[in-house]
Every structure is written in structure tokens, then in C-alpha cells.
Amino acid sequence: MSDRNHSAPVWQAPVELEPLRPAPDGGGGNRPGPDEFAGPAGAEKVRDISRWNWAVPAFFGGVFALVLVVLAFDASDLLSRAFASGYAFGLGVSGLLALVVFAALWLALDEAISIRRLRRIDALRAEAERLVIADGHGSAGHFADAVSGFYRDRSDLAPAIESLHTSVNDAHNDREVIALIDRQVLAPIDQSAYNSVLRASRDTAVATALSPSAALDVVIVLWRNLKLVREVASLYGARPGRFGSWRLMRRMLANLAVAGVAEGLSHVAVEALGGSIAAAISTKLGQGMVNGLLTARVGVATMVLCRPVAFTPANRPSLGRVRTELLSVPKDVL
């Protein structure tokens, strides 16, 4: 108890302060805007214990530069050959080239923006964690502003943010403010994200149960998982872009592998059982359920990654409802 940071070291007798003069930072007029918010302020950076080797960046940087040079040579080669075979043709090719370059830049920019948004979510989450652990008072106002700034252009969240601002007062400590953000702003998002997860896992389950080939299974799972990730991420205000975060990708790849393997297994199983129709149907259904559950796992992982405040044990989304939902799939299919 004695290591609390707000215990006053010097005795201060009760005193009345006249006239009324709040300190300049009490009014909240010069709080940092949402864009100025720059990660956990006091948190020490975890030191990278792996040894830094100059050769690694030099190698990859060099390779990248070489590829760029090769591409530039090829492009100029291509252009000179195109112009040599005709002026109009040359113009057409250079137009195409410009389009490709422009599109590539556009994609890169898009990706950069989405990565930046994900980074901001990560920073928000780290800040929330720091505030909860510090258990102090008076610094969560900035965090609330940062979160509401992050969702500034979301008209569907405007009432929630409005009610957050009316219910937070000066008596709430940092933990309470974060709990209020959690239950007033994020809980409705959680609800709709969970509904998309439910829908996606049902879709995948039904579609893979009905699909005739393993290749089709893989395609369905890939497409539906990608769509789910984008849906959930955009609900939380993150844009995972085409690559999103590597953790999500890894989970998805694991899913795809299971979709393929499950198909292989089902053949073995059906042959072992004598290839009756019932057996075939039941293995197909089982396989669909597995795919559905895995899709749900991807969805929940996306929710965890995209939430500006980490889930608490009390509100962590569970796969329980997904399971019961999936158990009703056989009825729908048959």
C-alpha cells in the first residue's frame, strides 16, 4: 500500500483556496486530439533481446533495391521496344505502365493507412491496459477522448459515444472510465461482430457440408474467412487491408489446411465404412461443423485483435453459442 504514487509525501493541512482558480489543465481545453495520441506514454519499451545483425536489413534492402532496378530496366526496355514498333502502340503501353504504377502506389497507400489504424488500435489497447494496471485517477479522460475520436466518423456509434460522455464524471477513476467505454461503446460492436461470426460459421458449415470437392471446400473457406475478417475489422473501425495482420493470416492458413485434410479424412472414413450414403453424409456434415467452428475461431481472433480495449474474462466472446448454432445445421441441410 505504501508504494502508491498518489500518497502525498509532505503533510498538507486542509486549506480553503480563495479565490476560485482552477489550474489551467483542469478544464480539459487542451487535451491532445485523437491524432496526437501516441501510444503508451510512460510504458517502457520491451528491449529486444535478440542480437541485432546489420547484415539482415542490408541483405533484404539490397535485394529490394536490385529488384526495383531490374523492373526499371525492364520497363524502359519495354517502352523503347514498344515505341520502336509504333508511336501509338508505345503510347498505349506507357499508359498501361502508368496505370499499373499508379495502382500499385494506391494499394500501398491503402495498406499503409490500414496498418496505421491497426497500430492505433494496438496503442489504444496498450494504453487501456496501462491505465487499468496503474489504477489511478484523472488520466482516463484523454483515453476516452482518443477512443471517441477514433470512432468520430461512425454515425452509428454517435449515440453510444454521446451517452458515454454524459455518464462519465469527475468522480470516476481510470478503471471505471475504461469499464464504461467497454460497456457503452464497445459492447454494441461486440454484439454485431459476434452475430457476423455466427453467420459466417453457419455459412461455412452448410457450404462445405454440401460441396462436392475438397478444392471447392478450400475456396469456400478462404473466401468466407476473408470476408468475415473484413466485416469484423470494419465494425471495430480497423481496416485489415489485403494482408491484415500476420497473426490472422496464420490462423486462416491453419484453417485452410484443416479444410483440405478433413476432406482427405472423410474419403478414408467413408471407404472404411463401406461407402454407404449415410456414412458419406455424416462425415460431410461433421466436416462442415469443423470448418464452421474454425471459421468462428478466426472471427473471434479478429475481434480480439481489433478491439481498442482488451476483453475481460467477463465479456470474452465464447464459442459456446457457435457450437449450439452449428448443431442445428444438420437439420437445415437434411
Partner: peptide, 10 residues
């Protein structure tokens, strides 16, 4: 009025 009410030791 504004006043410092005193603090509670921890």
C-alpha cells in the same frame, strides 16, 4: 468555493 479537504493516509 474551492478547497483542499485534506488527504486520507493509505
Amino acid at each position: 468555493t474551492v478547497l483542499f479537504p485534506g488527504s486520507i493516509p493509505d
